[in-house]
Computed example of a mutant assay.
Amino acid sequence: MSQDSSKDAFLILRKDFDLPELKESFDEEQAILFLSKAVSQLLDRDFERLLQICYRIDLGEEKLKKILHESKPDQVSLDLARALWERQKLKIEIRKRYS
């Protein structure tokens, strides 16, 4: 997937999770870490909102359940952030391909 798809994914997820703007050059791993911190906060404080975002992004109920139940406790937010990231990038690529 292209760098443009990664940047587009960050811009979309940035709105959903109120992520900060990246000041330096774009780095996908840094963006996923920002997303992971936001996911962690939502896991602790507003689980319902996190579920709504996952539904809107169309993460998939089975994938969400697998992450929540099978990931190590300290890895849940990072695994979920990666899954959301990859799903958003895939959606962008599909839109580009079929538009």
Score class of each variant (00 low, 15 high):
residue 71 S to E: 11
residue 37 K to S: 07
residue 69 H to L: 12
residue 8 D to A: 11
residue 67 I to A: 08
residue 38 A to Q: 02
residue 77 S to E: 08
residue 15 K to H: 06
residue 24 E to Y: 06
residue 32 I to D: 01
residue 13 L to Y: 03
residue 13 L to F: 02
residue 4 D to C: 03
residue 83 A to P: 04
residue 90 L to H: 05
residue 35 L to M: 01
residue 62 E to G: 01
residue 65 K to S: 11
residue 79 D to Y: 04
residue 4 D to W: 01
residue 29 E to M: 03
residue 96 K to S: 09
residue 62 E to H: 02
residue 71 S to C: 03
residue 92 I to R: 04
residue 38 A to H: 03
residue 52 Q to N: 10
residue 74 D to S: 11
residue 10 F to G: 03
residue 59 L to V: 10
residue 99 S to Y: 08
residue 80 L to M: 10
residue 97 R to G: 02
residue 87 R to C: 12
residue 25 S to V: 06
residue 15 K to M: 09
residue 64 L to I: 04
residue 80 L to W: 00
residue 72 K to F: 04
residue 8 D to I: 11
residue 72 K to W: 05
residue 98 Y to T: 14
residue 73 P to A: 11
residue 98 Y to R: 15
residue 61 E to V: 05
residue 87 R to Q: 14
residue 11 L to S: 13
residue 84 L to Q: 01
residue 21 E to C: 06
residue 94 I to F: 13
residue 37 K to M: 05
residue 53 I to R: 03
residue 62 E to C: 00
residue 88 Q to P: 00
residue 85 W to R: 05
residue 71 S to K: 10
residue 80 L to C: 02
residue 14 R to F: 08
residue 56 R to K: 13
residue 7 K to G: 00
residue 91 K to M: 13
residue 28 E to D: 09
residue 91 K to N: 14
residue 97 R to D: 06
residue 21 E to L: 13
residue 4 D to A: 12
residue 31 A to N: 03
residue 44 D to M: 05
residue 23 K to V: 05
residue 98 Y to K: 15
residue 48 E to R: 12
residue 96 K to M: 00
residue 50 L to I: 09
residue 47 F to M: 10
residue 78 L to C: 03
residue 69 H to S: 12
residue 69 H to W: 05
residue 14 R to Y: 07
residue 69 H to A: 07
residue 45 R to K: 13
residue 53 I to E: 07
residue 10 F to C: 05
residue 56 R to G: 01
residue 40 S to R: 05
residue 68 L to R: 12
residue 44 D to A: 09
residue 7 K to L: 11
residue 25 S to M: 07
residue 43 L to H: 06
residue 9 A to T: 07
residue 13 L to E: 03
residue 23 K to I: 07
residue 46 D to R: 14
residue 69 H to D: 08
residue 85 W to K: 05
residue 10 F to E: 03
residue 98 Y to V: 15
residue 68 L to P: 02
residue 90 L to W: 04
residue 9 A to D: 01
residue 37 K to N: 04
residue 24 E to H: 09
residue 38 A to G: 02
residue 70 E to Y: 12
residue 50 L to A: 07
residue 1 M to V: 07
residue 4 D to M: 08
residue 56 R to M: 02
residue 3 Q to A: 11
residue 77 S to T: 02
residue 85 W to E: 06
residue 62 E to P: 00
residue 87 R to W: 05
residue 93 E to H: 08
residue 29 E to W: 01
residue 71 S to T: 08
residue 38 A to C: 04
residue 18 D to Q: 12
residue 84 L to N: 04
residue 34 F to Q: 01
residue 2 S to R: 10
residue 46 D to T: 06
residue 53 I to D: 06
residue 29 E to L: 01
residue 70 E to C: 06
residue 87 R to G: 02
residue 9 A to K: 01
residue 73 P to L: 06
residue 81 A to S: 10
residue 31 A to I: 09
residue 37 K to V: 03
residue 59 L to M: 12
residue 22 L to M: 15
residue 40 S to K: 08
residue 48 E to N: 10
residue 97 R to K: 14
residue 94 I to E: 15
